[in-house]
């Protein structure tokens, strides 16, 4: 490959990496709070709430993300076809974010649930006796401890998400892996794949570093 093509490749990859980053951050932005909501519904004492949530968790965690992407992207038109109505399609990028969000919220929900259940009942009781409200207890007492509890599992999940963003290309989102694939074939060289690999690696080193420094910051208590 000539220097010029390499230069072009790198600039193209930088712009494609912006898409990858967008998928990553938007997914987190929506799935982290959604996961918390799902976890709280999952822990509801009412079966009528609990059961559909368990079903949702089963679907999301029990089927490949790549299938969910295709389903969510093509479903509206297929369904509209069946019902003879026109259901507007989600734009590719929006469908990708929706699929990633629903999928990751399911994983996050289960991690939250584990983290919440790991907080001793004594903490809830101490807060109750002190007169803290349920909301205060959750946000002031429970959640900070949950965050410490779930940090290692979350770190894993974040790193997986970085790599999973590559699946968005299935429905035509032009992210870094798609670009690498295309230019690999155009240039008959696996260098673009290597560059893409390097990008994921750098991104994940940042994520990993972030989690370990956050872990250190929470090390002040046990």
């Amino acid at each position: 490959m000539s220097l010029e093509t390499i230069y072009k490749l790198v600039t193209n990859m930088l712009s494609a990496s912006a898409v990858t980053l967008e998928v990553f951050f938007l997914t987190l932005l929506f799935s982290l709070p959604l996961g918390l909501l799902v976890a709280s519904l999952r822990m509801s004492k009412y079966k009528i709430i609990q059961l559909p949530i368990r079903f949702y968790l089963l679907i999301m965690r029990g089927t490949p993300l790549i299938l969910q992407l295709i389903f969510i992207y093509f479903l509206p038109s297929q369904l509209g076809d069946k019902l003879s109505v026109t259901i507007p399609m989600l734009p590719r990028f929006g469908a990708a974010i929706l699929a990633f969000t629903l999928n990751y919220a399911a994983y996050f929900a289960e991690i939250y649930r584990g983290g919440i259940q790991a907080v001793p009942t004594g903490q809830h009781e101490a807060a109750a006796v002190l007169g803290l409200s349920k909301v205060q207890t959750f946000f002031r007492v429970v959640l900070p401890q949950v965050i410490k509890n779930i940090l290692p599992a979350m770190g894993n999940e974040f790193m997986t998400l970085v790599k999973d963003t590559a699946l968005a290309q299935t429905i035509g989102v032009m992210e870094i892996f798609r670009l690498a694939k295309s230019s690999t074939s155009t240039n008959s060289s696996i260098l673009p794949m290597f560059v893409a690999g390097l990008f994921y690696l750098i991104m994940n080193s940042v994520v990993s570093k972030g989690f370990s420094s956050l872990g250190k910051r929470l090390d002040y208590y046990k």
Partner: peptide, 29 residues
Amino acid sequence: MKKLLSLSLAVVLVASIFAGCAKKDGKDD
């Protein structure tokens, strides 16, 4: 609201699985 959304999506996903099956059978072609 989000719960409702995700719920209905899950339902729709399942519905479409069945819809897909029906198509394969050629029943409603």
